[in-house]
């Protein structure tokens, strides 16, 4: 009933909300782990100390399955299911690391990297930066000439946080935090495909939107696209 909120831990991100169903035992990379039914493979892997890289998943939000970084191999199943949207099943055998998975993740992360401001890669410390580091992704094969979002304008209308769309990976964590955690539904994804972008209300500056500045989206953002102004020196201090 309330495990989703009560089971959260400060220093761990299980990737998907904790559940409280009856115990289910499965095998992850040879490690046996028992978790409540309804848990995701991603949560089980985190508990088995085999954390799976992820971008669009975080344990305060329901699984979404959009970033395709958390793919795994499951014995007896075709393809490479996303571990965040795959519930655990008794006796399931999961492989979180393999040469194929490594290649797939590298391909996906390289695409994200190719549309991220390159100058902001070296000293970043967001989840996105940490994931790139952990997977050893330092470059991508797509060159500099392709389409990108580098010219998108920063929205610094809110006195407390800013939105830098150039760093947005459109994982929808902010959209879902606003809906699921705060319940205000002020943020959405506008457009389709490469045109997709995060907008507040009717594509308004945050300050003029229905946003209530609860900070849930900022906390949920994995790439510092939404970030507290107080973390910057200088112009954004007490803006």
């Amino acid at each position: 009933m309330w495990h989703e909120v009560r089971g959260l831990k400060d220093e761990v991100d299980f990737g998907t909300p904790p559940r409280d169903g009856p115990p289910v035992t499965l095998e992850i990379d040879g490690v046996m782990i028992t978790v409540p039914a309804g848990s995701s493979v991603m949560l089980a892997a985190t508990k088995a100390d085999r954390a799976i890289p992820k971008l669009c998943a975080t344990d305060m939000l329901e699984a979404f399955g959009s970033c395709r970084v958390c793919l795994v191999e499951i014995e007896g199943r075709n393809g490479f299911p996303a571990s965040c949207t795959t519930p655990v099943v008794e006796g399931m055998k999961v492989k979180t690391r393999s040469e194929t998975l490594k290649r797939l993740r590298k391909g996906v992360l390289g695409l994200y990297l190719s549309d991220f401001p390159q100058s902001e890669i070296p000293d970043g410390w967001s989840e996105f930066h940490e994931t790139l580091k952990a997977e050893g992704i330092t470059s991508h094969p797509y060159g500099e000439a392709g389409a990108n979002h580098f010219d998108a304008k920063v929205d610094d209308s809110n006195p407390y946080f800013l939105f830098d769309p150039t760093k947005c990976i459109v994982c929808s964590r902010c959209v879902r935090a606003c809906a699921e955690v705060q319940g205000t539904f002020a943020i959405t994804i506008d457009g389709r495909g490469f045109e997709s972008k995060v907008v507040a209300s009717q594509d308004q500056p945050f300050l003029q939107s229905e946003c209530v500045s609860c900070g849930a989206c900022v906390q949920a953002c994995p790439s510092h696209a939404l970030v507290e102004k107080s973390l910057f020196e200088g112009e954004y201090k007490n803006a």
């Binding site: 909120v5 009560r6 959260l8 305060m60 006195p159 407390y160 946080f161 955690v181 705060q182 209530v212 500045s213 609860c214 900070g215 849930a216 906390q219 507290e228 107080s230 007490n238």
Partner: peptide, 13 residues
């Protein structure tokens, strides 16, 4: 449980 509002989260200055 990890949630906040504008006052506690931002209005501390």
């Amino acid at each position: 449980h990890g949630h906040s509002c504008i006052k506690g989260r931002f209005a501390y200055d």
